[in-house]
């Protein structure tokens, strides 16, 4: 179902519209969040917070942006807020996660990729936070720069530059391996 129809249904029959929204976007948003926060438990929390926030604020949504980018904005903010909270509590840092990656190439209960994917994830974790978000949205979610601009509130030019730098860094890291 098209997003416009889901939005119309959200206004006329919120329960049904929200169920359709969940069906369409829960997996996509989970993977987007998971790639940012890495741990499943954190991704689960952020995903639930995202949809609770969507439910509470659906009345404020205006068609100025698409439903798709609005959802990604909320999910990204939830994920980044969780990362900040994690840094404050310093229970587990991204460097720590990198070590977990490194030591869990085989037999990990939460990582299912091959060696190339493991190397790529390690390289992505070395990027600054904003570049990581930009890289993930472009590379994994295949968003256009226009959509990314709507999600992150950054100009398309800045996003292009950020993605370019991210790719160069990743190539360098992978070449160094």
């Amino acid at each position: 179902m098209h997003d416009d129809n889901i939005h119309a249904l959200l206004l006329s029959d919120p329960g049904k519209g929200f169920s359709l929204l969940l069906d369409k976007y829960s997996r996509k948003l989970y993977w987007h969040i998971r790639r940012l926060v890495i741990l499943h438990e954190d991704a689960d929390d952020a995903l639930q917070n995202t949809f609770v926030s969507v439910w509470k604020n659906i009345g404020n949504f205006r068609n100025e942006s698409s439903l798709y980018t609005w959802l990604y904005t909320i999910a990204t903010n939830e994920a980044l807020a969780l990362l900040k909270k994690r840094q404050r509590n310093s229970t587990i840092s991204l460097d720590g996660l990198e070590n977990i990656f490194a030591s869990s190439a085989e037999g990990s209960s939460w990582f299912d990729g091959d060696e190339a994917q493991l190397k790529l994830q390690n390289a992505i974790l070395k990027l600054p936070e904003k570049q990581r978000v930009v890289f993930n949205l472009k590379y994994f979610d295949e968003m256009t720069y226009e959509e990314m601009s709507s999600v992150l509130g950054t100009s398309e030019g800045a996003l292009k530059a950020s993605y370019h730098h991210a790719v160069k860094k990743i190539e360098k890291i992978l070449a160094g391996d």
């Binding site: 919120p14 329960g15 929200f18 169920s19 969940l22 069906d23 829960s26 997996r27 989970y30 993977w31 998971r34 790639r35 890495i38 499943h40 689960d44 995903l47 639930q48 949809f51 609770v52 439910w55 990990s108 209960s109 939460w110 990582f111 299912d112 990729g113 091959d114 994917q117 493991l118 994830q121 994994f140």
Partner: peptide, 22 residues
């Protein structure tokens, strides 16, 4: 995606979210 999720996670999380919202 190189990450794993617990089996049946997406069905469970949908139920949880609906219970918390609708």
């Amino acid at each position: 995606n190189p990450f794993r999720v617990p089996e049946g996670y997406f069905d469970d999380v949908t139920r949880k979210i609906i219970a918390d919202t609708i």
